[in-house]
Design a binder for these strands. Sequence first.
DNA 1: ACATACTTGCAACTTTGTTGCATTAATACT
DNA 2: AGTATTAATGCAACAAAGTTGCAAGTATGT
Lengths: 143, 143
Amino acid sequence: MISDSQRKHILHRFRLKVTSARLFVLDILIRSDVALSHNDILSQARDPQLDKVTLYRTLDAFVKSGLAHKVATEDRNWLYALHHNDQKESFEDDHAHFVCDECERIYCVPVVPAGKLQISNSDQSFTVRSHEYRLHGTCPQCQ
Amino acid sequence: MISDSQRKHILHRFRLKVTSARLFVLDILIRSDVALSHNDILSQARDPQLDKVTLYRTLDAFVKSGLAHKVATEDRNWLYALHHNDQKESFEDDHAHFVCDECERIYCVPVVPAGKLQISNSDQSFTVRSHEYRLHGTCPQCQ
DNA sequence: ACATACTTGCAACTTTGTTGCATTAATACT
DNA sequence: AGTATTAATGCAACAAAGTTGCAAGTATGT
């Protein structure tokens, strides 16, 4: 369990003002080992009542600041997850997304920098059934 | 330019009834070397006036039949493209998606079956800036 | 403690996609 | 070719998801 002051420290590091909404969302993301949707998070917040707009803006702020990143799922949702190495300030850390075909959870799995894939959840075993390699860059027409 | 009867033949092969909407959409997809969104296609159809619902259903039919496949983009859209090898009946043919950071076009680039990536647009040069490897399968919790 | 600038919560709105249904069109069969 | 059957189409109404503007509230540096 991560402490309140630890979470405040994280928000400070990413130059985000400390508010209860942000502490709450950060806590949920820290405790989750899978990427979560806006809706996943909202439904965990019935009790402390989190406004949907505030959550949209909180998640945006997390992504813009580099604290979190978002993944587009095949069913056109956005899932949010913290970077593993929270030293990193940008989206470009080296990880792949593993989608479980059963439960549809999305895990961020580390890959070795060279680009050679390695799923290193130690004792855990992921069975890879198919893959999609998405490349970003500049196409011939824009060179 | 692909003939009318060639397109009819393709629709037949995928057990789709031949209608003017489907011939029209198929023609657009054949002529495009990039994946197109619902909106891209709709805006090309001002003249012959294609209904938005018909287009949604046409694209669904193309995907279900195996004629086309869809890609979820980072901005939560779906883009549609035909399979390269139209002999293939399933989504699982071996290609990766290349996203141009300038024009945001999405190209389907062939990869060698082994999984080793190869961009083979012969003379054309793609500059790869970042990548995302998305894996599908079964996670530890669902084994 | 105060001023300032940012965040929040609400309501209204826009955008995107879906459903139901009556009409029209495509295919198989005689 | 004509007809029956089944599927596709187009419209309108609806539903879901996300955005904007704004007034009120809150965090932070001085």
